[in-house]
Amino acid sequence: MFYRLGGKDAAFLLVVFGLSAVGFVLPQLRARAWHGVSWFGWWMAALMVAGPLVGYLHMRTGARR
């Protein structure tokens, strides 16, 4: 039914968007703050750092479908 997506590519997308989803569903992240900024903000900042780096390593270490 679908064209086949490689296992590494699928895993990469699942991790990135799974972690994003955690940021939206955990109310604790919105209720607490660190240095005045809610944990949700820091979670998004962490995703902005980790997503690109993991993505680049993924592309450079033989991501193939």
Partner: peptide, 12 residues
């Protein structure tokens, strides 16, 4: 950051 995290994660 929610807006720009969306933009950045749109790249993968």
């Amino acid at each position: 950051l929610a807006l720009f995290a969306g933009a950045i994660l749109g790249f993968p």
